[in-house]
Amino acid sequence: MPKPTIAITIGHTHYARIFSDAAWRELNTFADVIHHPGDDPADKAALIALLPRADACITSWDVAPLDADVLAAAPQLRALAHAAGSVKRFISDALWARGIQVTSAGPALARDVAETTLGLIIVGAKRILPLGQHVREGGWRESSAWPSREVSSSVIGLVGASSVGRHVLDLLRPFRTTVLLYDPFVSTEEAARLGVAKVELAELVRRADIVSLHAPAVPSTYHMLSRALLQEMQDDAVLINTARGALIDEPALIDELRKGRFFAFLDVTDPEPPALDSPLRSLPNVVVTPHLAGCITDCTRMGEMAVEELRRFFAGEPPLHPITPDQFGRIG
Rank of each mutant, 00 (worst) to 15 (best):
V211A: 10
R141E: 14
V211N: 10
L180E: 07
R227P: 00
V113G: 00
Y182N: 09
N241I: 02
M233F: 03
L131D: 08
R166K: 15
T221G: 10
P219C: 13
W140A: 11
E190Q: 13
G124N: 06
S152E: 13
P130M: 13
A237D: 00
T177G: 06
N241A: 03
L204S: 04
W140M: 11
S148K: 09
S153F: 00
L158R: 07
S212W: 04
M233I: 12
V186F: 02
S162Q: 05
G132Q: 11
D112A: 15
V155K: 12
A243C: 00
E189W: 06
V159K: 07
Q234C: 00
R173A: 15
F175H: 10
M233L: 14
T178R: 15
L109Q: 15
D235C: 02
A237Q: 01
E200M: 09
L171V: 06
P219F: 08
K198E: 12
V211Q: 09
V123I: 15
L225Y: 02
S104C: 04
E190T: 12
S187N: 05
V159E: 08
K126L: 14
G119Y: 03
S153H: 07
K126A: 14
D236I: 08
F175M: 12
R227Q: 15
A243N: 01
G119A: 13
A105C: 08
E203P: 01
Y182A: 09
A217C: 07
S162N: 04
S162R: 05
Y222R: 15
S152K: 13
A197T: 15
N241D: 09
I240F: 00
P219Q: 14
G157K: 13
E142F: 01
H214E: 12
V196M: 12
G139T: 06
T117M: 13
L131E: 10
T221K: 12
E142I: 03
S104T: 15
V238R: 02
A108R: 06
P107K: 11
R141W: 13
V186M: 03
I156Q: 08
A145N: 12
V196K: 11
I121R: 05
H223P: 00
A114M: 11
S143K: 06
H134F: 02
P184K: 08
T116K: 08
E189C: 07
R141I: 14
V205A: 01
G165S: 11
V151F: 05
T103L: 11
E137Q: 12
P147V: 14
V113H: 02
A237P: 01
L169D: 10
S212T: 15
S212I: 11
E150V: 09
A108H: 01
V238S: 01
S187L: 10
H223G: 09
A125D: 09
S144T: 12
M233Q: 09
G165I: 12
R166T: 15
I156G: 04
A108T: 03
V196W: 06
L204M: 09
R206F: 00
G160M: 03
R127A: 14
L120Q: 14
S144H: 03
Q231C: 06
I210R: 04
V155D: 07
A161N: 07
V151K: 06
S226W: 03
K126G: 07
L225P: 00
V123N: 09
L181W: 06
G195H: 02
